[in-house]
Measured scan of single mutants.
Amino acid sequence: MQRVNMIMAESPGLITICLLGYLLSAECTVFLDHENANKILNRPKRYNSGKLEEFVQGNLERECMEEKCSFEEAREVFENTERTTEFWKQYVDGDQCESNPCLNGGSCKDDINSYECWCPFGFEGKNCELDVTCNIKNGRCEQFCKNSADNKVVCSCTEGYRLAENQKSCEPAVPFPCGRVSVSQTSKLTRAETVFPDVDYVNSTEAETILDNITQSTQSFNDFTRVVGGEDAKPGQFPWQVVLNGKVDAFCGGSIVNEKWIVTAAHCVETGVKITVVAGEHNIEETEHTEQKRNVIRIIPHHNYNAAINKYNHDIALLELDEPLVLNSYVTPICIADKEYTNIFLKFGSGYVSGWGRVFHKGRSALVLQYLRVPLVDRATCLRSTKFTIYNNMFCAGFHEGGRDSCQGDSGGPHVTEVEGTSFLTGIISWGEECAMKGKYGIYTKVSRYVNWIKEKTKLT
């Protein structure tokens, strides 16, 4: 034993070699072989497995989906700052455009905790909710729209109204504003409101030439003092309507412009014939205590009207009353817009006519005020429907199939267009061939041609 100890002390290297040989010859039971080890760690190889990531292109799944990435790591994937920024906006807080917040056709661009709407022409605001041009839906104005110097929408209202708090709607500024039905039992019968379409306001006024200088022999019209197929109006439903009495009662109609003036057809009036105007009328054979009678003290036909040349060209006249009318729910003026808007309103496509005229061709006159909704007829169809001249200051309205029309005794009465609950004068009943005849239409004086003249002559002093 002493000898062994001496050998170990003198030859430590020998001992180490012996131990190493023993270990190498022993069977290893701690580690699995290569094949079995792979069965336990069965993990798919990654895209760049075996390579240094710093030297390969980034992978979106590896960089940002398996674990949260930084902007720089995302930049490695896209290799483009702009594309990385677009991805980053949604990656950080989701897609803010998912709810489609942009209105009126706006395009949404996502941002971090926010979004941006790219608005089409005519709109602005956070969600493109603000109209900035009158060309689109009248700028959301209830009545009139004008573009300011910086191309912003400025709404306005006709006389007797003021802008509401929203700067879009119009509200009454006087007790009985024009064009409004205020009798409670008839307010439910107000005709369907007309909503502004998209309009090209630059070209809204037709490029028409008034044929002022045409000389033409007097034409022989049949029954051209021209509501057939209409309905009984309720008291106060058309408070701007008046009836004219002269040699015979209810020979023509008219509309209240203001307390002192009536507008009617020029062919209705004769110099030297006494005319009485009755406002607030409903049943011409009954006294309903809503009527107001006034005498006409002055007749002003349009300066281009000449019955000797043509009885229905420039067929418009103004009547001055001896005493002002007292405005109330049964006696209310009709609204008159400017030339541009009167023309736009007419193009809405349908209007209402009213009167006490004959209820059928050569038949009896109506006792109760009649009204009828009539569609506008395109000019080409209008011209083809008659052998008589249709001037540019006239328009056609009615039904091709016949059966409904204005008729004798309705002449001078109103053709009105309702705009968001307020009625505007767009025409004056003038003439036609018979009444409600198939293929024939009622012919009306186009008020847009005469609004400046009306307003100039009827100013209240």
Rank of each mutant, 00 (worst) to 15 (best):
D33I: 07
G13S: 13
P239M: 00
A380H: 09
H267N: 04
V269D: 02
K260P: 00
V243A: 13
M394I: 11
L367R: 14
G106P: 02
L369K: 12
T194F: 12
S217C: 06
R83P: 13
E165Y: 09
V416R: 02
E142A: 07
D223L: 11
D338Y: 03
N147I: 08
G357W: 08
L369S: 13
E98S: 15
N48V: 06
L325S: 00
E98P: 04
G106C: 03
T422R: 03
F224G: 12
V243Q: 07
C382T: 02
Q2D: 05
K293R: 12
V277I: 11
T287V: 13
F424L: 01
T81R: 10
F71Y: 06
R62P: 12
N80Q: 07
H361A: 07
I428E: 01
D200M: 06
Y450Q: 00
K168Y: 14
Y115W: 08
N38L: 09
K146P: 01
S70D: 07
E10C: 15
L372F: 13
N138P: 08
C119A: 02
N5Y: 09
V269H: 03
M65F: 13
N36H: 13
L425C: 00
Y352W: 05
G439W: 04
M6E: 05
S448Q: 06
P301T: 09
A279Q: 00
I454K: 01
A317G: 02
I390F: 10
P301F: 13
V331W: 00
A265F: 02
N245I: 03
E54W: 05
K109I: 09
W88R: 15
K51Q: 15
G229A: 12
A9W: 15
V228L: 07
C117T: 02
W240A: 01
E418S: 15
P177D: 00
K339S: 15
P120T: 07
T342L: 04
I256M: 03
I443E: 02
N166L: 02
A308D: 11
S406H: 14
S430L: 14
Y305T: 02
F87W: 15
R294P: 01
E27M: 04
V174K: 08
V416Y: 10
E288N: 08
N59Y: 08
F388G: 06
M6R: 13
R384P: 09
N59A: 11
T133G: 12
E193T: 08
A233G: 06
P120D: 08
A380Q: 13
L32G: 14
V30K: 15
L189M: 08
N138H: 11
E288R: 06
N36P: 15
H415R: 01
L383Y: 11
V326P: 01
L60G: 13
V174L: 07
R404I: 14
H415A: 02
N222P: 08
E208T: 13
V242F: 01
T426M: 00
S169W: 06
A233N: 07
G13V: 15
S169L: 05
C119Y: 02
S255G: 04
E10G: 15
V277D: 00
H400A: 15
Y305S: 02
T381P: 05
G421I: 03
T218N: 10
C102S: 00
T417L: 00
C102H: 00
N42C: 04
N147P: 12
D410E: 14
V368D: 05
V331S: 03
A380F: 13
G363L: 08
T186W: 08
G253T: 09
I443Y: 06
M65L: 08
N5L: 13
L211V: 13
K109W: 05
W261K: 02
W88Y: 07
V377K: 04
E67M: 13
G13D: 04
